[in-house]
Simulated assay, not measured.
Amino acid sequence: MRAGQLRHRCALQRAVETPGRGGSTTSVWSEVGQLWAEITIPTGRIKVAADQLTAFISAEIRVRYRTDIVAGMRIVNEPSTYLVEAVLPDNGRTMLRLLCSNVVNP
């Protein structure tokens, strides 16, 4: 992939459990690193949930191959945040296709 297509500078984040008061734990997002990505948004739909309209957006994000990206991480490209649902190797270990979702309340 040519570098020109990787035009979005994004933060890669993972959930980290931190101890809270009374023995409970709290999940916070910790930045793993920065990466360049190509973000395409192939589908979207609107659904009524709890008397509110909610837009569900599915995105495909392509990044250079890395071994540390797994499902459950997230990609932040301000102002959007995408949850990584699946990680698929592409082009013989040169690229990764990340199938992601984003929930937006209009």
Rank of each mutant, 00 (worst) to 15 (best):
R97W: 07
G22R: 10
G92K: 07
T25I: 07
V28F: 08
L35R: 08
F56Y: 15
I69F: 13
G22M: 07
V84E: 01
E85D: 14
P19C: 01
I69P: 03
L53C: 00
L53R: 14
I61R: 06
S58K: 15
L6E: 01
N102W: 15
V70K: 10
Q13T: 03
V70D: 00
I75S: 03
I41Q: 09
N77G: 02
W29T: 03
L96N: 05
L88S: 10
V87S: 05
L35N: 02
Q34R: 15
R93K: 07
L83E: 05
A15N: 04
T81D: 00
G72T: 05
E78Y: 10
R62M: 06
R21Q: 06
V32W: 11
R7N: 11
S27G: 02
G33W: 00
P79L: 05
Y65D: 00
G20R: 08
E60R: 15
W29R: 11
T43V: 10
T81M: 02
T94N: 11
C100L: 04
L35G: 09
Y65A: 04
V70G: 00
R64H: 12
P89W: 13
N102P: 03
M95A: 12
E31P: 04
E17I: 02
R2N: 07
R97G: 01
G33Y: 11
R97L: 13
D68T: 04
V16Q: 03
T81A: 06
G44F: 12
V104F: 15
I75M: 09
A3M: 09
D68E: 03
G23A: 04
G22C: 04
P79C: 08
R14N: 01
R14W: 12
Y82I: 05
T94K: 14
I61S: 05
T54M: 08
E17L: 12
T94Q: 11
I46F: 12
V16H: 09
N105Y: 15
Y82F: 14
W36A: 09
P42R: 11
L96D: 03
R2D: 05
